[in-house]
Design a protein around this nucleic acid. Sequence first.
DNA 1: CACCATGTTCCTTG
DNA 2: CCAAGGAACATGGT
Length: 284
Amino acid sequence: MPELPEVEILVRHLAPLLKRRTIRSVDVRRARSIAPSSADKFGGALEGASFKSVTRRGKYLVFTLRDAGSGGSMILLGHLGMTGRMYLRAGNKPLPKHAAVVVKLDRGELVFEDTRYFGRLTLDVSALERLGPEPLGPEFTADYLFSRLKGSSQAIKTKLLDQGLVAGVGNIYASEALFRAGISPRLTGKRLRREQAERLWRAIREVLEGAIAAGSKIPLDFAGIGGRDGLFYYGSEGGDSGFYEERFRVYDRAGKACPRCSTPIRRLVQGARSTFYCPRCQRG
DNA sequence: CACCATGTTCCTTG
DNA sequence: CCAAGGAACATGGT
């Protein structure tokens, strides 16, 4: 579920559902999924607090709460890791096998489910300080991107995964953006020309905006009322409409035809992660 | 059994 | 001090 567009869609669904809800108690079912790791401290800090807003920063969910005692603000950060999901549970359904944390509200309960337990729900907000600019915000400019990349001897694809460079791009959209920009994932930062940086800047924004627009059209049920749980899959889930089929042009498409030139898409490994690209459309 | 998976942090090496 | 590379975390799918 986890790159910027998926988190953005999740936040848009959750915000109205959680606003003004009060936390009654917190059921920590996996200690490693929270911080501070003491369930008593974690739950104690949250009990009685109410949601003021739910926003996003990079791949993080930012829950701004009103503290019951002091009346001041506090922030709860959420990160989905690789397999995290969040939704309000329908009262009649059992908890999922990998429910990590259940936040019981004055009405309903928020479930944080996470199969691999790489995600977190934390009161420690220090991770935010290390994040680079929002890719869709005003601070992320072509000049910024070029100046940050031009000294790097690292492959450009690997650099795009650096959350300190730009916040929210992950393994899928890094490949997608490079394809859209027609740039080889192996190109190093120092060999990237200004004009390429400009194209890459535009491609990153377009790819993310496109994914958000696509996600906005999917009927989802984060309130847990309908037939499906409120889960937003990036992949070929959902069945209806073949909607997901065209979401990715190169990611996970090794051996399949490039949508632009029909050359088979290739997979390579960079920094222990898969990269997908078209060897013909992405040279140099 | 082998290998792969949307992410981040920590450790080592240079 | 910094950059870069890799392992670790944990579970499931193919």
